[in-house]
Design a binder for these strands. Structure first.
Lengths: 141, 141
DNA sequence: AGAATAAAAGACCTTTTTATCTTTTAATGC
DNA sequence: GCATTAAAAGATAAAAAGGTCTTTTATTCT
């Protein structure tokens, strides 16, 4: 479903939502260590998210990554689509160039049904809301 | 979700189910052309399926690939797992090393639901049954 | 201003996936 | 037996994904 980069991105964003604020920025090192992902690789991904204004960052001493209030109010879907492209939730699960309601592949309707399930979670909730859920239900990221 | 190889494999198997028989074998060329996939690459995949007894083949004149009655009565899931490995339906959608009922990631339950829906289709039906459905409902492969 | 810090950017490198081409092996029909 | 056909196997190549390292730029603090 998602590329490794995308998985790292989602986890990092949730981690930032839970552990950072404009007053408490986190460096790549800390994030990479906590999530146990390759640090330089994660840096690239965070840069990309930052460039696309999905996360915030400042350079220099006591700089780092964090989520602004605006960042917290966007959806994880944007994060996913920034990293894996907008087609992730749109392309045929069998790779057919055309696969639609009128012209479905054998897995079309089931695939749609459950993609929508995922979208419910990552689009129906803001990052902030998701983070709260992670905290309350002690979910793993 | 599935690798390209796996998508080609699924489509090829369904194509064989619909268009081949022990008396009517198909060459890679025909299959590749019909499905519009790279022929040499498909050949590799078919070899792999054949080695694992999920499809049948014979060499020489009037040889080719086909599905035996036994092949028709297995599930597409086996095809998928032969190509993409048994972990496709088992690994965490966020890539976490442990992600379970007791220790779920934020997408765990929706992801499970998603997978189970797909499994319903590719495991709950034999390849033969799926092929019938493809024919009756004029689905695209 | 200068030192220190941390992200941004760029250049590489490695591995995996996808794809192609050639040679070998097995089966068929003459 | 020989020519032909088609899969099996092997070698290689191209592209994409994943990962590392170095240099540059911006910021802060003294």
């Amino acid at each position: 479903m998602f590329s490794k980069s995308c998985k790292y991105a989602m986890r990092a964003v949730l981690f930032l939502a839970l552990n950072s604020s404009p007053k408490k920025k986190l460096g790549v090192n800390q994030i990479a260590e906590e999530l146990d992902v390759p640090k330089h690789f994660l840096a690239k991904i965070l840069q990309q998210l930052s460039r696309n204004l999905l996360i915030s960052s400042t350079k220099g001493p006591s700089g780092g990554f964090f989520l602004s209030e605006e960042n917290l109010n966007t959806s994880l879907r944007k994060v996913v689509e920034t990293i894996d492209g907008p087609e992730v939730f749109n392309s045929c699960i069998l790779g057919l160039p055309v696969c639609s309601f009128e012209n479905p592949c054998p897995l079309h309707f089931k695939a749609i049904e459950y993609r929508n399930g995922l979208l419910e979670v990552i689009e129906g909730n803001s990052i902030k809301e998701l983070a709260i859920r992670v905290k309350e239900k002690k979910l793993t990221i």
